[in-house]
Simulated scan of single mutants.
Amino acid sequence: MDPAENETPLPQAGHAEVRIVAATPEAARAVAEVVRRCFAGTEQRSYPLPGGGTRLHLTVDTETIAGPVRSWLATSRASTGTGPHAEEF
């Protein structure tokens, strides 16, 4: 992980930073589209990964409903075993 990413300030209250890592830009965009159906968000930013692949970043507004799926997300419970991957902080 890039040390500079650890120094990234937290997003403002009610917002979340989403990072998607995929083998192709198309796969990353498809996942971002699903996220944007649930939450209002900013324009995505994508970066190539060393050795291939794409990392896509977007900021979502968790307080603004972007579609009907939002109500399900608001009432669902977190799955067990969720949490950061070993390489995430």
Results as ranks from 00 to 15, higher is better:
Pro3Asp: 00
Glu7Met: 08
Glu7Cys: 04
Thr8Lys: 12
Leu10Glu: 12
Pro11Glu: 05
Ala13His: 08
Ala16Ile: 02
Val18Arg: 00
Val18Asn: 00
Arg19Lys: 11
Thr24Asn: 01
Glu26Asn: 00
Glu26Val: 01
Ala28Phe: 07
Arg29Thr: 04
Arg29Asp: 06
Ala30Met: 10
Ala30Ser: 10
Val31Tyr: 06
Val31Lys: 12
Glu33Tyr: 13
Glu33Leu: 13
Glu33Val: 13
Arg37Asn: 11
Cys38Asp: 15
Ala40Gln: 00
Ala40Asn: 00
Ala40Glu: 00
Ala40Cys: 00
Gly41Cys: 11
Thr42Leu: 10
Glu43Phe: 07
Gln44Arg: 10
Ser46Trp: 09
Tyr47Ser: 14
Pro48Val: 07
Pro48Cys: 08
Gly53Lys: 02
Thr54Ser: 04
Val60Gln: 06
Val60Trp: 09
Asp61Lys: 03
Glu63Tyr: 03
Thr64His: 11
Thr64Trp: 11
Ile65Asp: 08
Ile65Lys: 06
Ala66Tyr: 01
Ala66Thr: 00
Val69Tyr: 10
Val69Asp: 13
Ser71Tyr: 09
Ser71Lys: 11
Trp72Thr: 13
Trp72His: 14
Ala74Gly: 01
Ala74Lys: 03
Ala74Cys: 03
Ser76Arg: 11
Ser76Gln: 09
Ser76Asn: 05
Arg77Pro: 08
Arg77Gln: 15
Ser79Val: 03
Thr80Ile: 13
Thr82Leu: 10
Thr82His: 11
His85Ile: 08
His85Thr: 09
Ala86Gly: 11
Phe89Thr: 05
